[in-house]
Design a protein around this nucleic acid. Structure first.
Lengths: 339, 339
DNA sequence: AAAAATTTTGCAACCGGTTGCAAAGATAAA
DNA sequence: TTTATCTTTGCAACCGGTTGCAAAATTTTT
């Protein structure tokens, strides 16, 4: 396992040293190819002597598989995304795929990013976001790239696989939980107003509440998934007239909102109840103890990567797969207990 | 800008359509090459008609530049790393580089990851970790890859560029801040015991305290940078005899430690003081308000990427660059105020 | 032992680009 | 107009691999 400082050995050099043809070397490194045990051992000896490793990029030229997968996201501020990255990178690695990550935060020119991924010949793209503009993922599909949209909403296109949660049902879950507290003035403090996830949760939320006409319902939106956004929006709600219980679009927003409430002198959950969304790790910490709705991150991401694996391994263009997982209320200390 | 569903057009096809040679097409897409305005426009017309984009992987074969940079990390649980990723990916994108990320969490076979990066012909590697075993980065350097170790400690090797903080000085900072509180029993609650960052901070910490022989100093280590680790270690400290002020290796550990303290009935900062490390975003939240030491993340990462850019642009093998930034105490509510 | 079937091997072409070089074309100088 | 200089162009070889195909080597069958 010689180190050769800089210059890396090539197939040809290994072939020369082993005294065989270049094809023979190529074959010993391509699984499923036929090489005699003798040749193989000669090649392996020579290869390890030179420290040879195949150039995957050159290989991709003929195989048309790079093993690269674009991982596109636009939320690098929400702690939940660290978990998302951790899971995605690990799962992809397990499938022998390398994530090429694209950070769309503050990116004006999203199309340029798409082109970049195309130029790098990624085998597929994972879009991990619930807040990208509708139609963003289409660009990839139109370029003929296999794509799975994690945390997305099943849409019109047959060629975009979606794995995520049932946001409508999640909205219902939240509404029911607030109703169970006996509130008669509740609020929906959503994320970005145009995000599909926000709209779907709102739909479910209102769906349940429409059966309780006596309960007054207020709707507000935080601009983004940040502490400040939650804080500011709740501060403004306080001025305009506070309800008793709120469903916040996200745990970080919840924490911002709770800070605004506490600063204004309200006690949680005695005077105002909060239910968040995501169940990020910190939600369970002693000084937070946020009641929230958990989305099954691990399952979503495992399914996304499985789906990807399936598409990539089968030559046939796959049947579209949509999979939405159910969410679950995690009861902690920011809503009064019922029953 | 025709879409052609799947099959992507190649140089040759563009050349044919434009009625020029393949070289001409290549040249219009390589900046700095000489093409007449007429040819260029013919090529551009044909290219956009076909929706042509060069294959960067094929190009890399001859140019020996892939634009890929390995980004290796082993901490996907600490919120501070989300900020690190955000900054790194953005800065790299700004330099026209694509991060190929390697998640070393729970990875038994780190060497395999190194090989993978080599097989993908990355132009350079960024190791972003203060807890990888000493000598880990060496592997890359030995393979002749330019490397910058962010959050590392300058070491013996001349070919490893290090950008980070002065951990020894940071340890001093913490010690002085605790001493200023008038404590006579202080503690160091470090991160992983063998990590260079832990050892350096401890060195600085003890260095200052050695001038105060009357102050009793206790030293403990948390196994990793997690809430549980901080909680458990502090719980055990409580049993063994509690001091008055602690320097915790990390904000998350601090929060775990504080939970243990509060559960045991101690008030912070009245009975026990805590100073953390990192100043992650949450440290400033209303229900945390952690006094901590901030490392200048933005500066470190910008410098790391600049350093990389320099190495990659200059053909000459670069002069080694080490750069350590100073840290800063951020006073909040977990240490009594002095002055 | 010869014929048939199977496996292993190397040749040569190809994947999608780049680039040194010499010829062709354009421009400037004589 | 002729000659010298500079720019643009295409040819062909190359980057580091893979692969279809036919020949060579080996194994199996008769």
């Amino acid at each position: 396992m010689e180190e050769n400082r800089g210059k890396r050995p090539t197939l040809g050099e290994v072939a020369a040293l082993a005294g065989v043809s270049r094809s023979a070397v190529s074959r010993t490194f391509t699984k499923g190819a036929s090489v005699s045990p003798l040749t193989r051992s000669k090649v392996e000896e020579a290869a390890s002597q030179l420290g040879y490793r195949p150039n995957l990029l050159a290989r991709s030229l003929t195989t048309r598989k790079t093993g690269l997968v674009g991982l596109v996201a636009n939320n690098f501020h929400n702690p939940i995304f660290l978990e998302v990255f951790d899971l995605f990178t690990r799962e992809l690695q397990r499938e022998g795929l390398r994530p090429l990550i694209v950070n769309l935060t503050n990116e004006t020119d999203a199309l340029r990013s798409v082109q970049l991924l195309l130029e790098y010949q990624v085998d597929a793209v994972v879009v991990a976001s619930s807040t990208l503009p509708v139609g963003f993922a289409d660009t990839f599909a139109e370029a003929g790239l296999p794509i799975v949209h994690a945390f997305g909403r099943p849409g019109h296109r047959k060629d975009i696989n979606v794995v995520g949660i049932d946001n409508i049902e999640a909205g219902r879950l939240a509404a029911r939980r607030l109703i169970a507290c006996g509130y008669d003035r509740v609020g929906f403090l959503g994320g970005p107003e145009k995000a599909t996830s926000t709209r779907d949760r709102l739909e479910g939320f209102l769906d349940v509440l429409s059966d309780y006409p006596k309960i007054q319902t207020r709707i507000d939106f935080a601009g983004d998934y940040t502490f400040e956004s939650g804080f500011d929006e709740m501060a403004s709600i306080i001025l305009r007239g506070l309800g008793q219980g709120y469903f916040c679009a996200d745990d970080v927003i919840s924490i911002g909102a709770m800070s605004a409430l506490r600063r204004a002198g309200y006690r949680i959950p005695e005077q105002v109840g909060i239910i968040g969304f995501n169940d990020m790790e910190m939600a369970g910490w002693d000084n937070v103890r946020l009641t929230t709705i958990r989305q099954p991150l691990g399952a979503i991401i495992a399914e996304s990567v499985n789906c990807l694996g399936l598409i990539l391994s089968s030559e046939i263009s796959n049947p579209t797969r949509h999979k939405l997982f159910p969410c679950e209320v995690i009861d902690r200390d920011t809503l009064p207990l019922t029953n």
